[in-house]
């Protein structure tokens, strides 16, 4: 390296530029993401309660995790969350994006309507929905009034319902967000492609099947990845609406991490749960990257 310095020094004003472009972003990520992540990784092998300094205890936390039924339940809940929420958030927003991408009068108001939940803070959304879900809330009053149900539904108070009720809020807040991502993609499809397709007899809804979906493939993928990752990290809706209850029925892994860290002050155990969760997410994304690469090759 040193021997080549004079020569490469000369070329490399220009070769250096890309790294200079990346450096500030990487620095801030290092400081606020990677350092804390490494810290959490270390703590998961220790006993630590914020008071005494961390004590190395090897894999004891992991053994405890393996035997912890609540961990397994929160894992199941998180997977259920993913399986239910992600497909809806990949497909429905694309439909909305296609709808609001049409050049119709007043369509912008639809766009604004669909986007509004995105801009509401989750805290406020959680409060608003908690209220709608209440025993005497808007939803149950509607059910009783319309005769669909005499008792009403225990949206947040029954273990059978709570997690699904929370999912609705996640979907409610996500629709418009992913719609905008799709919209950006739709705008980049040249108009003449549709015109050419129309000449070839592909019109109406077929044109979306023939042109939109294939060209939107990267965006579908992007939305799938983003929505999957955010679904595994769901926290605020649960914090506000159910606190993980009743009977842990709506407790996801992230909420469990929070509970262990900030309510039980089991800092290191919380880090262990978080680490395992991160590993699962990582495995999922690697798998998905593999699929993507395989698709591109095929």
């Amino acid at each position: 390296m040193d021997k080549q310095l004079p020569k490469s020094w000369h070329i490399d004003q220009r070769q250096l530029t890309p790294y200079l472009f990346l450096l500030p972003a990487l620095l801030i990520l290092g400081l606020t993401v990677f350092y804390p992540a490494i810290q959490a990784f270390y703590l998961s092998f220790t006993r630590y309660d914020l008071i005494d300094s961390p004590q190395w205890i090897g894999v004891a936390n992991f053994r405890r995790l393996w035997a912890d039924p609540i961990f397994w339940q929160t894992l199941r809940n998180t997977i259920l969350y993913l399986v239910c929420v992600v497909p809806i958030l990949v497909i429905a927003p694309l439909g909305l994006a296609i709808l609001v991408n049409q050049k119709l009068r007043g369509i912008r108001w639809f766009r604004v309507a669909y986007y509004t939940p995105v801009i509401i803070s989750m805290v406020v959304a959680g409060i608003a929905w908690k209220w709608l879900y209440a025993d005497n809330g808007l939803l149950n009053q509607f059910l009783k009034f319309s005769g669909l149900s005499t008792e009403g539904i225990p949206w947040l108070t029954s273990p059978d319902w709570s997690i699904f009720s929370v999912m609705v809020v996640t979907i409610w807040k996500g629709l418009g967000y992913y719609m905008v991502i799709y919209l950006a993609g739709l705008q980049s499809i040249p108009e003449d492609l549709y015109e050419a397709a129309a000449i070839d007899g592909s019109d109406g809804f077929r044109k979306h099947w023939d042109i939109t979906i294939p060209l939107m493939h990267p965006y579908l993928f992007l939305v799938a990845v983003i929505s999957a990752i955010s679904a595994t990290k769901v926290f605020e809706e649960i914090y506000i609406m159910t606190q993980g209850g009743p009977l842990n029925s709506s407790k996801t892994i992230v909420y469990y991490v929070y509970e262990q860290a900030f309510q039980s002050l089991e800092i290191s155990y919380a880090c262990t749960i978080g680490l395992v969760m991160f590993m699962i997410i990582l495995a999922l994304s690697v798998l998905r990257l593999g699929v993507q690469r395989w698709e591109q090759r095929a």
Binding site: L29, L31, T32, V33, F34, Y35, P36, A37, I38, Q39, A40, L43, I226, I229, T232, K233, F235, V254, V257, Y258, A261, I267, A270, C271, G274, L275, M277, F278, I281, L282, S285
Partner: peptide, 18 residues
Amino acid sequence: LLVTLFPPILLFLGLLEV
């Protein structure tokens, strides 16, 4: 991409220290 995978909660304690 890895960064997007970390649940913010996990970064908490380290961040507090920073």
